[in-house]
Amino acid sequence: MHAPAEQRSEIELELNGETRHGRTEPRTQLCDFLRHDLGATGVHVGCEHGVCGACTVLVDGVASRSCLMLAVQADGRRIDTVESLARDDVMNDLQQAFSRHHALQCGFCTSGILMSCVEFLQRMPTPDEAQVRDMLSGHLCRCTGYTGIVRAVLEVAHQRQSGESQQNASEKPYDV
């Protein structure tokens, strides 16, 4: 049951580069508001305790668990979800590397992991394996064993640093 209209809060935020408006109850989690009210279904809700990382989005450029944030706290902020990564139905370099390295299987955790990787690579453009694994320790993935994810992140970091095209680098293996 929803609260009466007078108890709902008006929210305006920038979602994936577009100004969006909505009304929601003050207690609504950001993940639920994004999925159900704004249609950003790439945000997955797993544990609802901030442990699994499936709901990770970027809030003003910082990887954040959207299950631990209320929607009203996002008012006036910039939110980026996995839907922001592809342009004109073309996956970005990180998504392509995930595909090449079989870094996803069921895909439930993938959107949150991708968003953490986006922020991580901005902060740390030349990570080593241990740093990537440390960043991934905040995510639960039951399918992949993480090796493909680590390879994908290291490949993208290398490509970005060397300026290589995705086609040239896609044939090079990254041992992990």
Rank of each mutant, 00 (worst) to 15 (best):
L34I: 01
L34S: 01
R35T: 10
R35A: 07
H36F: 13
H36M: 10
H36D: 15
D37W: 08
L38C: 07
G39C: 00
G39D: 03
A40E: 09
A40Q: 08
V43N: 03
V43H: 04
V43Q: 01
V43P: 04
H44R: 12
V45Y: 02
V45C: 06
C47K: 10
C47L: 08
E48I: 08
G50P: 12
G50W: 12
G50V: 11
V51D: 12
V51Y: 13
C52D: 03
G53K: 01
G53I: 01
G53V: 03
G53M: 03
A54N: 01
A54I: 06
C55Q: 00
T56V: 10
V57H: 00
V57A: 00
L58F: 09
L58Y: 10
V59A: 09
V59M: 15
D60R: 11
G61C: 12
V62S: 08
V62T: 15
A63F: 01
S64Q: 13
S64H: 10
S64P: 06
S64G: 09
R65E: 07
S66V: 02
C67M: 03
C67F: 00
L68C: 13
L68P: 05
L68M: 15
M69E: 05
M69I: 14
M69T: 12
M69L: 15
A71V: 06
V72D: 04
V72F: 02
V72H: 02
V72L: 11
V72M: 06
Q73G: 05
A74G: 06
D75S: 14
R77K: 15
R77F: 03
R78Y: 07
I79L: 04
I79G: 01
D80C: 06
D80Y: 05
T81R: 09
T81V: 04
V82T: 02
E83N: 06
E83Q: 11
S84V: 06
S84N: 12
S84L: 00
S84E: 05
L85H: 00
L85V: 00
L85T: 00
A86P: 11
R87E: 14
D88M: 07
D88K: 13
D89C: 01
D89P: 00
D89H: 04
V90W: 07
V90D: 13
V90G: 02
M91Q: 15
M91T: 08
N92T: 09
N92G: 13
D93K: 10
D93N: 14
D93T: 11
L94I: 10
L94M: 13
L94S: 05
Q96C: 11
A97R: 08
F98N: 07
S99F: 13
S99T: 14
R100K: 13
R100L: 15
H102C: 10
A103F: 12
A103C: 10
L104I: 14
L104V: 15
L104E: 10
Q105G: 10
C106L: 10
C106F: 11
G107W: 12
G107E: 06
G107N: 08
C109V: 07
C109K: 11
C109F: 09
C109S: 09
T110N: 03
T110V: 02
S111C: 09
S111W: 06
S111Q: 11
I113Y: 04
I113H: 06
L114R: 09
